[in-house]
């Protein structure tokens, strides 16, 4: 055990964990975070707070994490390398650790082209793998990238993302191995709709024994509508939505589609739970946080254990 992280404790104990996601608002209203937090509180073990996702300016991940922390929740601070150089990154890590944030998810971040400030510069001083390295260096060796010693090491449980559906497929297992080499401890995957492909990826992971070196949490996102499913299929880079899923949504009446989306999600979780090496579920209910409890309940993930 390296940190005070509740997530790490649960995973080390062998619990099947549940995490979810909370997107900060496009404004300074803390109540929005509190409301979302309240919806998730008893349904999951920890909550990711996104970092200006899709390159749209939002309340900072670090502040939203603190608001959740004040509610007695366990935040996972997402950090992208798009917007900060190594000075700002290390400074924010120290700040977050000082305020009791124990988990971090290292990401490169969506390119700013997708966001509301596409004319901005990006930074990418370091990439997501190097961010993992940085956290490990700061925590385990108590050093900054520049080499100086840190007074008061930031102890964070280090996570990263994996997308088994991006191309080239053959590189997806080696890429995870690379993140493990860098020091990652838990992985949250991209939303899984193509279970066959995910299982194939997991086979590759198990084939190399990587599932024993890192905790893999399988990502799911319920469909609210056909429009959303089509958007995910066509517009979101690296997303694999099989046609059968969209057909299934189409086969039910319009007003029942959201319910069907939940049903698909629950079935997906049931199947994911059986896959060797999957250590938890990451439920990303995009602007639909009120459904996370229901999904977790229907999928037999409740009640959540107490540490």
């Amino acid at each position: 055990m390296k940190t005070e992280s509740k997530l790490e404790k649960l995973l080390e104990k062998g619990e099947f964990v549940v995490t979810s996601e909370c997107g900060p608002p496009r404004g300074a209203d803390a109540d929005i975070i509190r409301k979302k937090g309240a919806l998730l509180k008893d349904a999951v073990d920890a909550v990711n707070v996104t970092d200006n996702q899709t390159s749209v300016v939002r309340m900072s991940s670090i502040s939203a994490c603190i608001i959740l922390k004040q509610m007695g929740m366990e935040p996972i601070m997402q950090m992208v390398t798009r917007d900060r150089n190594r000075i700002a990154i290390q400074s924010d890590i120290l700040g977050a650790a000082a305020l009791g944030v124990n988990n971090i998810l290292c990401l490169s971040g969506d390119h700013q082209k997708f966001g509301d400030h596409s004319s901005g510069k990006n930074v990418y001083d370091i990439d997501s793998v190097q961010l993992i390295q940085t956290l490990k260096l700061m925590r385990d060796q108590g050093r900054f990238i520049g080499g100086d010693e840190i007074q008061g090491k930031p102890a964070m449980f280090i996570g990263a993302a994996a997308n088994p559906f991006a191309d080239p497929f053959e590189i997806r297992v080696p890429r995870l191995a690379k993140k493990i080499n860098a020091g990652v401890q838990f992985i949250q995957t991209q939303c899984i709709y193509n279970l066959d492909r995910f299982e194939k990826w997991m086979e590759g992971i198990r084939g190399r024994g990587l599932h024993e070196k890192v905790h893999i949490l399988a990502g799911v996102t319920p469909f609210k509508s056909i429009g959303m499913a089509n958007y995910m299929k066509k517009m979101v880079p690296g997303m694999d939505v099989p046609d059968e899923m969209i057909e299934r949504l189409k086969s039910v009446d319009k007003e029942k589609r959201a319910e069907e989306g939940i049903k698909i999600c629950v079935e997906t979780i049931e199947r994911l739970k059986k896959i060797e090496g999957v250590r938890g579920i990451h439920i990303m209910a995009i602007e639909w946080e009120e459904k996370v409890h229901e999904i977790a309940e229907k999928a037999g993930l409740l009640p959540r254990p107490v540490v």
Partner: peptide, 10 residues
């Protein structure tokens, strides 16, 4: 990215 590819490649 010096350690790519990212998850957006398709």
């Amino acid at each position: 990215l010096l350690n790519g590819p990212c998850g957006g490649s398709s």
